[in-house]
Every structure is written in structure tokens, then in C-alpha cells.
Design a protein around this nucleic acid. Structure first.
Lengths: 228, 228
DNA sequence: CCGCGAATTTAATCCGGAGTCAAGACAGTC
DNA sequence: GACTGTCTTGACTCCGGATTAAATTCGCGG
């Protein structure tokens, strides 16, 4: 009666065992994303993973443990990816451009790499207390990342002066987090969505006339450009 | 053994009966908003409404009927209120100002009058098919309202030319619909949130071009008006 | 091709929540 | 003070879904 073992020599294995485990996690993520925490049946997960329900207990001690695994790793995936992208950026990149990159990173992970991450986002508020508690740290971390991004814009004078920094952050995250709700991969490539989202959010934050139009506008009406 | 009667003469009554019924609906809305469809127990609703569980069946034939009542009236509340506000507006108001008003109307109803409306929004995707079916008409209606608002902006040249009209609509609704998720009435008045939201969204849509320059910008990039 | 543990199934149990029902209690009304 | 509408009390059924137990198959090293 064994807890499943890690592969012999290697650690990130391709075991049959670990592949089954992965299938279960993926199935759970998909269903959590669609039906929510309370709406996801263990038997559905099993079916989608092509196993019988009790097999889940070979890998996870309980339904909640499985759910926890899904949302925690989903959360970690987002954070790691966004942090990773940001850390690759040159130090002298203007803050607003960092926001642009963060938007893309967030959307790409949530819309493309899928399920785990959006399951984490969408269910956060409806999870049982113990699981929710384990999410708060990551939530704070991620919040802080965005706070930092927005504050940097403000300090660089690139943020529209009449925006509350805290609220602005919430709106950005709102627009991002709502995306999985309506996004349909059949209706167009992720990249298009990302493009438009970036423009939308940058417009919202900067309020200024964007670089590529500034000259034209300035020529037309050289007065009144300063951000009031 | 009576189905509850409407009040004698008056229709929007203050009956004891109708007040109890209202308490039940309010309780259900609150819990649906917090725990989602599948996470809301009948007994919890009853407790919150200060009634015994079987009493619910005096007013509603089933749990789902109650839920349906909540989300449908929540949806109707939003639509009616926003439509009402828009119809009061002078005809010659610029489209972008109509958006501003619609944003305020939507937020006010969702954040203040609350629960019902946000329950409708948040649970939409997780409801059982029969209920969801009854929501689609309203969803289309509401979608169309916003489509109309945004398209009008585009046609008036007040929309940032590089925004896809359809996607822009989704972002606006995203920012609005995510608000109940983080809004905390103790942290500040609704009006502040509304103010900032209006600015944020108007910046996003118009690209922050001030009124006196909008013509110039529209002339510069008259393309990209298609309403996909 | 045997044996043994890992992986998974089949069958059984357990529990909570929806929904029912019958018998009252209590309030306001005529 | 009888009547009706509004609930409470306290069962009790029923079912689906989580969990457990026992039995079975798979797959590999010997």
C-alpha cells in the first residue's frame, strides 16, 4: 500500500504513475474552472481523467487536498511566470512598458496555459477557509507586484494624475481576470486579445496622448498638452 | 394550505408574508454571492432569513426556483436601472458621456443595492442549464446596450481608433464586474470608486485625448471602426 | 514465469442536504 | 370565537457524492 513513489533516479519523472497524477490534476483544473469548487464532482474529475473515482485517493488524501494542489500550483504558475518575464526586462525600461509586459504575461498564462491559473483566480473567494488561507500569501505577493508596477508609473509621472493608485490596480486586475470568462479561443488568436488589452490598459492608466500620435497632435494644436 | 397571496388591495405590499418572502430572497442572494450556486445550502438561507428550512417551500417550489428568482430579478434590476438612467439623459449628450453615466449606474446598482445583481453576474456561468437558459435573453439585451454605447462613441470619433470595439466592451464590463470582488464598503464611499472607475474607463476608451484635440486624432486615424 | 509491490478497480459504506409530510401554534380578521 | 394564512416542529425518505475496504490487475526485477 504505497504512497506513489517518485521515479527512481530522475526527479521530474515521466512515470506512468506521474502521468496519471498529472491527468487527474488537469481534469480537476478544467472542471474547477468551469463549475467552481462546490460544483465539481469527484466522479467527473475521475471520468475526465479516465480513471475510477477511488483511484484519486491513491494520489491525494482527499478531494480538498486535490483542489488545494490545483489552485496553489495555478497561483504559483501565474506568479512565477509574471515575475520571470519582469525580471528579464532591462532595468531602464520605462515603468509603463513594464506594465505592458506584465499584462501580456498575465493574459498569456491565464488564457493559453490554461485552467490551473484561471481556476485559482475564479474560485478563490468560494473555497473553504483552510484552502483560502493558503492562498492569501500568494495573493499578497501578486498584489504587491502590481502595486509596485503602478506606483512606479506614478512616480515616473506616467500615470494619469487623477487616478487613485490602489483603485487603478484593481481595475487592471479586473479587466485581466474577467478575460477568461468571455475569451473563446475559436474566435481569434490570444495575441489579438493581448494587443487590445495592452492598449486598453495603457490608455486607461496614462491618459496621455500616446507617443506615436503626439507629434501629429502637437502640430495640430500645440497648446494644452500638459496633463492638467 | 395556501400559496401565499398577494396583498389585498395594493400590489407591492408590506404584508408580513411578503416581507418574509423578501427576507428569504435577500438571504439567498447574499449567500449565492458569497458561496456560489452549488455552495449555498438551503438551511443556511433559512437561518440567515430567520426562518425554518421547510418554510422556504411555502414560498418557492424548489431550491432552484428560489435561485432562479434571485438571479433573474438581479439581472432585471441591473438592466432596468441602467436603461432607466440612460433614457433620462438628454439626446444630444455626447456618446462618451453616456458611457460615463452607464458606468456609474452599473456600479451603483452592483455595489450598493447589491447582492442580487452581483449574484446574477458571478454565478451566471455555474448555474444549471435551465436557469442559465432563462438568463441568456437578458444577457444579450445588456450586451447590446453596451455595444450600442461603445459603437456610438466609435461613430462619433470619440473612441481610441486602435481599439477593437467588441473587445473594448468586454474590458469595460470586466472592470465593472470584477468590482464587487474587491469592493469593501468600509474602505471608502461608493462614490469615490465610481469616480475613479469613470475616469479609468473613459481614459481607456478615448485614449485620453482631451476634447479639444479629439478631432485631430480622429482625422489622423479614421480607420478601425469596424464593429466586429 | 514467478512473485511482489504499485496502480487501479469493484463493491460497500457513510453522510449531508433536498425535499415531504402531518400536526400543531400563533396572529390577525371577520 | 371560528377561520385562514403563515409559519414551526420534528420526524422521515431519498439520493448523490465522498470516502473506505477488499479484491484485482499490471509490470518489472529476479
Amino acid at each position: 500500500m504505497g504512497r506513489p513513489r517518485a521515479a527512481r533516479g530522475s526527479s521530474g519523472a515521466e512515470n506512468k504513475s506521474s502521468r496519471t497524477r498529472a491527468r487527474i490534476l488537469v481534469a480537476a483544473a478544467q472542471l474547477l474552472d468551469r463549475h467552481g469548487y462546490a460544483g465539481t464532482r469527484l466522479t467527473e474529475i475521475a471520468e475526465l481523467a479516465s480513471v475510477q473515482a477511488p483511484a484519486l485517493y491513491y494520489y491525494f488524501p482527499s478531494r480538498d487536498a486535490l483542489v488545494e494542489q490545483v489552485v496553489l500550483s495555478g497561483q504559483a504558475t501565474i506568479i512565477d511566470h509574471v515575475v520571470g518575464v519582469l525580471s528579464e526586462l532591462p532595468d531602464d525600461l520605462p515603468p509603463i512598458e513594464r506594465v505592458r509586459e506584465a499584462v501580456a504575461a498575465h493574459l498569456r498564462i491565464v488564457l493559453e496555459t490554461s485552467d490551473f491559473s484561471s481556476a485559482a483566480l475564479r474560485n478563490a473567494s468560494q473555497l473553504p477557509e483552510p484552502i483560502r488561507a493558503k492562498l492569501v500569501e500568494g495573493q499578497r505577493t501578486y498584489s504587491d507586484i502590481w502595486r509596485g508596477l503602478v506606483v512606479a508609473c506614478a512616480e515616473a509621472g506616467q500615470l494619469a494624475p487623477d487616478l487613485d493608485v490602489g483603485l487603478a490596480r484593481m481595475f487592471v486586475l479586473g479587466a485581466l481576470n474577467w478575460a477568461p470568462q468571455w475569451f473563446d479561443p475559436d474566435r481569434g488568436p490570444v495575441d489579438d486579445v493581448i494587443d487590445t488589452t495592452q492598449r486598453f490598459i495603457l490608455h486607461a492608466l496614462t491618459r496621455g496622448v500616446p507617443d506615436d500620435l503626439r507629434d501629429a497632435v502637437a502640430a495640430q494644436a500645440p497648446a494644452g498638452l500638459e496633463a492638467r
